[in-house]
Amino acid sequence: MGLCFSRDNESVAKQRQSKRVAVAGGGVGSNRWTRIRSSKRDENRIHEQALAAAILFQQQMQNDGLASFDRSTSLRYPSGNSKRNQAFHRSSSSRARSLTDPLLQAHQLVKQGIKADNPETNHFVLVHGGGFGAWCWYKSIALLEEDGYKVTAIDLTGSGIHSFDTNSVKSLHQYVKPLIDFFEKLADGEKVILVGHDFGGACISYVMELFHSKVSKAVFTAAAMLVSGQSTLDLFSEKVDSNDLMRQAQAFIYANGNNQPPTAIDFDRAVIKELLFNQSPAKDVALASVSMRSIPFSPVLEKLSLSDTKYGSVRRFYIETQEDNAIPIALQESMINKSPPERLFCLKGADHSPFFSKPQALHKLFVEISNIP
């Protein structure tokens, strides 16, 4: 059954312990290796096609020069102009589902009353977490584009292939500048669905305060969903105090000297798999191990200033990752209780990187959220 949070109805929030939208992306632990062969072939096909497209894109960017990079991994514009559904249809993703179920195609979505070409909600903007880059969304990009959505994946300053020294990032504004540039160039009247992962949750919150009229919905995916006056470090401090694995994984960088504050946070590659990718395929872990960069420290220290009239006016949704070792489920629950979103989704069997561990189940949630009237 679905759980709907209302900013004006506290009684609804109290029901969250017994009611929530659940998506099962297959079993947890070793059960995930028991998928039938056809499903495995489908996953491999998606993986290979998306990875090939990502590699080709990066090659093109290198040939053209980074200066012309508009930080979009998608230039596909769906055709058609459908009206928003007037009645809410409960998604089939609210029941337990296995990845052996077939992946929904565009024509199937239309038959179910789910439109992939809504002029307000057909554009996803994906914002990576700390240490990641636009590359981490390659499976989600492929799946969303296949269903007719427009997708933009952003490389924040000093992340991915953005050519800037992470240690030189001095503020949250500087860190999210590529995302700010995107919104400043967005056409008048156009709105997007803004997705943030991990530290990207704080980043999209910052931008929601600046461009609330251009964000149709915000989706926090295993993300830092802060309240006004709180910094990501405040949240991470809660996490580290009770998370031995996080303490082991963190390595501070002192580019300005050991007698100065840290300039960045890096991860110990020896424990990164267990921390971030404990349910993810080996190929994706290998990709991450050679692609991740350090996290600028100054933005993590910065406290957010969020208002009810701007940030609070944007519809928020949260996707929990139940096998998450980086942001444990208890900490996710704490964030949700402090600032309840409109609706909560639980992604069973997903680690901290659901775009790797449960890409199809995550995709179905993205589609469902895009069509909530």
Score class of each variant (00 low, 15 high):
residue 114 I to H: 03
residue 53 A to F: 06
residue 33 W to S: 15
residue 93 S to D: 13
residue 135 W to A: 09
residue 177 K to G: 00
residue 206 Y to F: 14
residue 299 P to W: 02
residue 141 I to Q: 14
residue 300 V to R: 01
residue 41 R to T: 07
residue 26 G to A: 10
residue 334 S to Y: 04
residue 90 R to Y: 09
residue 186 L to R: 04
residue 332 Q to E: 12
residue 362 L to N: 02
residue 53 A to P: 00
residue 56 L to D: 13
residue 188 D to P: 09
residue 280 S to E: 06
residue 271 V to H: 05
residue 338 K to Y: 00
residue 94 S to R: 09
residue 144 L to W: 01
residue 217 K to V: 03
residue 200 G to N: 07
residue 280 S to K: 04
residue 137 W to G: 04
residue 304 L to R: 03
residue 67 A to I: 08
residue 48 E to A: 12
residue 360 Q to E: 12
residue 155 D to F: 01
residue 79 S to W: 07
residue 305 S to D: 14
residue 212 H to Y: 12
residue 80 G to D: 07
residue 236 F to I: 10
residue 183 F to T: 00
residue 67 A to G: 11
residue 356 F to I: 05
residue 278 N to L: 06
residue 2 G to R: 13
residue 232 T to P: 00
residue 221 T to L: 15
residue 37 R to A: 09
residue 40 K to I: 14
residue 98 S to L: 07
residue 142 A to Q: 11
residue 77 Y to A: 09
residue 198 D to A: 14
residue 182 F to P: 04
residue 28 V to G: 15
residue 71 R to T: 07
residue 105 Q to N: 11
residue 251 A to M: 13
residue 337 N to Q: 12
residue 146 E to N: 09
residue 261 P to H: 09
residue 172 L to T: 04
residue 141 I to W: 13
residue 288 A to W: 13
residue 256 N to E: 15
residue 100 T to P: 00
residue 29 G to W: 04
residue 328 P to M: 08
residue 191 K to Q: 14
residue 270 A to N: 13
residue 355 F to P: 01
residue 189 G to E: 05
residue 123 H to F: 08
residue 227 V to Q: 11
residue 208 M to R: 05
residue 159 S to T: 10
residue 271 V to A: 05
residue 248 Q to R: 15
residue 56 L to A: 11
residue 219 V to L: 15
residue 331 L to N: 13
residue 35 R to V: 05
residue 68 S to Y: 03
residue 33 W to N: 12
residue 154 I to H: 03
residue 156 L to M: 15
residue 68 S to E: 08
residue 214 K to E: 06
residue 327 I to C: 04
residue 354 P to A: 10
residue 221 T to S: 11
residue 246 M to Q: 09
residue 115 K to A: 07
residue 310 K to G: 00
residue 174 Q to I: 02
residue 171 S to L: 07
residue 302 E to P: 04
residue 32 R to I: 15
residue 258 N to P: 00
residue 141 I to S: 05
residue 1 M to F: 08
residue 37 R to Q: 08
residue 159 S to H: 08
residue 191 K to A: 04
residue 32 R to N: 02
residue 71 R to L: 07
residue 95 R to D: 10
residue 3 L to Q: 04
residue 123 H to G: 01
residue 310 K to E: 14
residue 311 Y to R: 00
residue 183 F to R: 05
residue 357 S to G: 13
residue 217 K to E: 01
residue 132 F to T: 02
residue 194 L to V: 07
residue 51 L to V: 06
